[in-house]
Amino acid sequence: MGYQKRTLDRRGYLQWTGAAGVAATAGLAGCLEDAENGDDDSSADDDAGAGDEDDNVIVPGTAPGFEPFQMNVDGELVGFDIDLLEAVVAETDYELGDWEELEFDSLQPALENGNIDVIAAAMTITEERQESIAFSEPYYSADQSVLVQTGGDVQAEELEDLEGLEVGAQSGTTGEGIVDEELGDAVDYTSYDNYVLAVEELERGTLDAIVIDEPVGDSFAGDRDVEVAFTFETGEEYGFAIRQGEEEIQDALSEGIEAVEESGEYDEITQEWFGE
């Protein structure tokens, strides 16, 4: 999908609820190509200063199905992360390339392999992830929520109340980590490629509860037959992920986040997607 200005806001998105899904791309685009010119005999020094337009293009990757951060609605990629990265990159000397849409747990390998240059997918900054990738400055803070079926039999007020139940989360997310670390074998756990699938199972009653990022849980609760049972405080922060060693891109994104916040555009994007 080409990079373009997104015009579908959260109000428009709600009209399409249920259409969100994951459109995993079959092939990943190359990125940050070397400025090599094989058509003439110019020296490497000349090429290094040629300013090939591809040098400033960074390819973004995301994982649709994590509303309202990123969703694929009626064939269009929309959401908070999409609009925010667009605004942030506009404050830098870089240009945004075509978006790659992947499953969440495929994003980090794609980044490390050089198939994408930045992850914009509500990715929590963790020490474990920082061992292999780097992050921009944080751009959003969140906790974890537990979703249950509206009007269902599950009455939960804390994690221990989920013991013995069917619990789900999205593969590779903080929610999955919470289930593993806090509940372990005390629950019957199911991992999903994306939260849309998990919520559908919850609505059907084949799943008892979902552990999910708080703002995403609130979004699902607003337009699905699910509700937030309680919130588990984690104090996590989201950042744009980049490869280690890409300090120029890292600094540019961090400075772009600061510029967007100072200009008030961050508040506008937040209001658009969260009504805050």
Rank of each mutant, 00 (worst) to 15 (best):
T7K: 14
T7R: 15
R10A: 14
R10Q: 07
R10E: 14
A26S: 13
C31M: 12
E33F: 12
E36S: 08
N37G: 04
G38H: 12
D39F: 14
D41C: 10
S42P: 07
S43L: 15
D47Q: 15
G49R: 12
D55N: 13
V57W: 03
G65M: 03
G65E: 04
V73E: 11
G75Y: 04
I82G: 08
D83P: 09
L84H: 05
V88M: 04
E91V: 09
T92F: 04
G97E: 06
G97T: 03
G97Q: 08
G97M: 02
W99P: 07
E100Y: 05
E100N: 11
L102A: 02
L102S: 06
F104R: 10
S106C: 09
L107F: 02
L107T: 00
A110Q: 11
E112P: 06
E112T: 12
G114P: 12
G114E: 06
G114R: 13
D117H: 13
V118G: 06
A120F: 02
A120W: 06
M123P: 03
T124H: 11
I125M: 15
T126S: 14
Q130Y: 00
I133Y: 09
A134I: 01
A134S: 08
V146W: 00
V146E: 01
T150V: 05
V154E: 01
V154T: 02
L165Y: 01
L165P: 09
V167S: 07
A169T: 08
A169I: 06
Q170C: 00
Q170V: 04
G172F: 01
T173I: 10
T174V: 13
E181L: 15
G184E: 05
V187K: 12
D188L: 01
D188R: 06
T190W: 11
D193N: 12
D193M: 12
Y195Q: 09
V196D: 02
L197F: 00
L197R: 10
E200I: 03
E201S: 14
L202P: 03
E203G: 07
R204T: 08
R204V: 04
G205S: 05
A209F: 00
I210L: 12
I210F: 02
I212W: 00
G217A: 02
G222E: 07
D223K: 08
F230P: 12
F230N: 06
F232C: 01
F232M: 02
G235Y: 09
G235I: 01
E236L: 14
Y238H: 14
Y238E: 04
A241L: 05
Q244I: 05
E246P: 07
E247S: 15
E247T: 15
E247I: 11
E247L: 11
E247F: 06
E248Y: 06
I249G: 03
D251N: 15
E258S: 15
A259P: 08
E261F: 09
E262C: 01
S263G: 08
E265R: 15
D267C: 10
D267P: 12
Q271G: 13
F274Y: 11
